[in-house]
Design a protein around this nucleic acid. Structure first.
Lengths: 252, 252
DNA sequence: ACAGTACATGCAGAAACGTGCAAGAACAGG
DNA sequence: CCTGTTCTTGCACGTTTCTGCATGTACTGT
């Protein structure tokens, strides 16, 4: 039995039965009470349960959903996505790009945040199906399989009919001179079309993207409001971007 | 054993069993734990799994539940889906509805079948992303979460711009007098719009749907070419449908 | 107040981990 | 066909993490 499994098991018990008794679980799983207690302590530290004498109780349901999702997100991108999710205002409209980082953002949207999400990614849409409050709008078009998003003329046309407060774009390259770049021309055009429909555009860029460039330009810096990244704020490239007047949101 | 094989094996285990224990896999495959760990590390870097102490877990528990649900799909739907998939001709264009049965059809499409699939379901689209030959076109619109498909004016409008050889629709009720019915008016309208764009419309109906009716009429029998079902061909209701001139394709 | 239980902490053995290294396979170029 | 390069794989090593036990403390119910 994996340690992470135990944690899931405990969270499951909390959700299903509304409580956990350390002694019983230890007996059920055939492990020591100490391990159960340690797990519960950790979960409580992350806000996933409320520790009580003898076991643990769930915290408020909305918070659980959110925090539990956080706990299963891969650590690397986790901080970028929650920082990006925090940009979304209650009641606002968000255009969300495709790609793994954007998907992580979708999963990081708090369960108690009511907002409208517009996306051209069936994957992102699927991930948000069980979000209790998010309104979903899907942009159709021909699907580009390698990136799993709708692109092309139809998709760009569909994008013309929407508008939003915020657009979160993933890119493959973030470079001071080359600007924001990606590997496919159609994708680049689609990202441009999405960005044009939002008041503000922020770029999602995990640290390995910083300082690299791909074949096709997506946007010049002037069209971008900011950058969400987990890169070191004192990184040379990041400093250059700040000098360009870009808002850099550190993710930690 | 090829490295790519190992990766597939690991992903398969994750999907089927919901976890991977490095030690066990190493013993099973007769390779070192180091290789397993390296693979898991790589997969985690690509966001395909979550690395934990002792092994790995799927990225999202929801995905597992989903994959597990598929794998234990009742035999009934399985046979309906392959019978329906057989209706698709090489090079043809298929409009595929949303819902679990349609999803099963998507997964039953032979890997060597080149065709175009048009769908308003992000879930179906996601499922076909890894089909090597299928061309995918997504119909956008407001997402109705309970059924996980795009519906409404925008979606209907998007449907006007496409046409296809075959339309496969799932419904919740199949009744000789009431016709084909479903539980939601918007969904019913969307299904009508899809059906209107295809030369032939076939209905996907696992046996429990036969003889029942829901609130909203989707189509009259005249607009339907046939029915794919795993119900007994000599069932009274099925015989009635045949008498109406319907082609009934048995699934076995 | 007292007994019984739950708890935190420290500790030690075991297991898992990351890294560097070397042997071998696969491959490209001559 | 040979050679140099790159990639993969397994092993060894030191490090980190986990787990159960022991100990002393805190809490609960009678």
């Amino acid at each position: 039995m994996l340690a992470a499994e135990r944690r899931d098991h405990l969270l499951g018990l909390l959700a299903r039965e509304g409580k956990v008794v350390a002694k019983d679980v230890a007996a059920d799983l055939g492990i020591s009470e100490d391990s159960v207690r340690r797990d519960l302590r950790d979960l409580a530290a992350e806000g996933l349960c409320q520790r009580v004498y003898g076991g643990a109780l769930p915290v408020s349901p909305a918070v659980v959903g959110y925090a539990a999702r956080q706990s299963v997100a891969p650590d690397g991108k986790r901080r970028v996505d929650s920082a990006a999710a925090a940009l979304v205002r209650p009641g606002g409209t968000l255009i969300l790009d495709g790609g793994t980082t954007a998907l992580a953002v979708a999963q990081a949207l708090p369960q108690d945040l009511a907002c409208t999400v517009i996306t051209h990614s069936p994957t992102v849409a699927s991930a948000l199906l069980d979000h209790p409050l998010a309104e979903l709008f899907l942009l159709g078009g021909r699907i580009f399989k390698h990136s799993a998003v709708a692109c092309g003329a139809a998709a760009v046309e569909a994008a013309q009919n929407i508008s939003a407060d915020l657009c979160l774009l993933g890119v493959t390259g973030v470079h001071p001179e080359a600007g924001l770049t990606t590997a496919d021309a159609e994708e680049a055009a689609m990202k441009r079309a999405l960005s044009a429909r939002a008041a503000d555009t922020y770029i999602l860029a995990s640290s390995e993207k910083i300082g690299t460039a791909s074949r096709f330009r997506v946007l010049p810096w002037e069209k971008v409001s900011g950058l969400v990244t987990d890169a070191d704020p004192h990184d040379a490239v990041v400093e250059q971007l700040k000098a360009l007047g870009l808002e850099v949101l550190p993710a930690d």
